[in-house]
Design a protein around this nucleic acid. Structure first.
Lengths: 194, 194, 194, 194
DNA sequence: AATGAATGAGGGTTCATTCAT
DNA sequence: GATGAATGAACCCTCATTCAT
């Protein structure tokens, strides 16, 4: 990749980052192209030169985000932390502002684009799910996970917790009850930790 | 309340219902005042006469929705179903389309308005929480809920499940693993149901 | 039609006239909605309220024009002028500026819309052609038109002359040779008037 | 002219041809510089290097076209066809698609540029008119053209016919009445061919 | 000389909101 | 009080043109 290409990529990444941060903070519709352009220090038209339309930009931002998230995820999975801490980290790790995701953007990812490119699905099937399944296998072998539970159900639970805890307005409220929540996750609302 | 007043209230409710249904289906920003006016068979200006601004309309729609949801909630709580079925009903009851809530509207409720009027907070404190606390107390006495868990944590968990399951794109995927999910809820990913 | 309606129609006509005059002078693409709005003393959005899109506006302007032109045509046809003067009037009558038609607008009428609504076709079939055929019949009976010629061919010829003479850049050049042109029309480039 | 020059001229001609074909097909305003650049396989800036502005490009394309058309014209004039066939060929010869001229481009030639460079005028005066006058003289001598008619009037008529017949939407409609039209041209709507 | 990148200006369109009847 | 009509501001997008390499 020559200097031209590299600079182009750099600029593209810059726009993607800017757009991602604005989208995650304010949602998609509230953010105008001109806003992104201003904050990224480029002209509106430059954005159009790179991405052709707002819709395309959103698409690319979305893929950019999914890749990034998948990488973060892998890192935790392949770390050598003990099982419970991996879970904790995945669920409760305070996200940096940049990855605090705006509901509308989340929704966009989940809904509008599953239909079209199904990129998120692909990433899930190729990476997230296999790694995750392995994690749960390990958990079962080490006695942290009930052998009878399906991996899907556990995956669902962890995802739910993660998504939910990630919400800004939720995160702060549950800080004091983090321990209880962890307990419920491991032992249910009924079970006892003993 | 005389005939005038009643007609006025009726018209207002009509507008609120229309707006709610459009908001929940398409989100707030995608729905224009003129759309609401057309579907509610009134003039745009009538809406402004009643609600002064779109922002106010949203606010009122939101309160209208919270009240309705709180009522539904009460009904389940005070029914004479056994504890686990109450939980199931709260979490898994297939919502009618009308209450399948659009993410953006949900977010609006959670974020923009917790700041300002905090009506949802008020309703929660006055009704939801007390009733819910009682529900959990009952659950503890009947041995369904671990005595050591805080009511807040359980409340959080149930809400999370409810919200998550309500999402259209989630609901269908988890149908096959409903039982596992219920099990995890009661006994954790570790514990066994036995 | 009540006062409301009348005023609405008046305003609509005002916009149509303004648009027509601008279109005929500058062509369609060069004329922006905001230009029309400014010259018609209304807001851009008012135009959108009446016509929904530029495309629709063009369409309506076009129909407005065709109707007007058809009326002018009828008037001449049903006047009690002698045959040659009718022809002269149809072909050479100095158009008011307002009906000096811009090529692009003409083309639009001829091409884009013949496909879609075929309104011009309808008007032609219902009014122009019958009237015109009668005119030619009269011309034949009075010995002004060769009996063997088809009405279509004569119609074509008159239309061609009319359209061509109407062009601004042409009109002035041919003024000095009007008589020759009339002669050619009646007696051909070969024939002699004697 | 060295190799450099020749290559330069070649590239210029390439751009002119591309622009001409796009202009004649879609009109001037609908064709963007970037479109021309793409289709001609050069960069936009190259076009600017050669032609300085879109306006200039149009100008040059126009001159390119007029020269070409004048050459075609000469060819017919100096051919050894009999007079009526020359006329027929000039008027009815089915143009190749490439020279089916878009109205807007035609108008541009006729209007905007007659004012400014008057190149077309010059060509007319220097070549078209003399040649044409000679043609008409021949016609008169051979008895095909009325001696009393001015050459201008006949020229006008032929041009009109040619321009009009060239229009796509007209050409097809008149095919069945070509003979009648030719007759009218030679003998008028009154006269008889006998 | 040639190009990829960048831009200011402007166009069509939508929307929350106000005016006037 | 209710309505049709009207509006200013903003948005997405395109284009002729210039900059920088």
């Amino acid at each position: 990749m020559d200097g031209f290409q590299r600079r182009r990529e750099q600029k593209k990444k810059n726009i993607l980052e800017t757009a991602l941060s604005l989208f995650t903070e304010y949602g998609i519709q509230k953010v105008s192209i001109s806003e992104i352009a201003k904050k990224a220090n480029v002209s509106q038209v430059t954005i159009y030169n790179y991405f052709e339309s707002k819709h395309n930009l959103i698409h690319d931002v979305f893929i950019y985000y999914v890749d990034k998230a998948a990488n973060d995820f892998e890192e935790v999975i392949f770390s050598d932390l003990p099982f419970p801490e991996k879970i904790q980290k995945m669920v409760f790790a305070k996200k940096e502002a940049a990855t605090q995701i705006h509901e509308e953007f989340y929704e966009f990812m989940m809904k509008e684009y599953t239909a079209e490119g199904n990129y998120i699905e692909k990433v899930y099937i190729e990476k997230t799910i296999p790694y995750f399944t392995k994690l749960i296998e390990d958990g079962k072998q080490q006695g942290f996970v009930n052998q009878e539970l399906s991996a899907e159900a556990v995956l669902f639970y962890i995802n739910m917790l993660k998504d939910y805890v990630q919400k800004e307005e939720v995160y702060q409220k549950i800080l004091p009850i983090t321990e209880d929540i962890t307990n419920i996750f491991f032992y249910g609302i009924c079970g006892k930790k003993d």
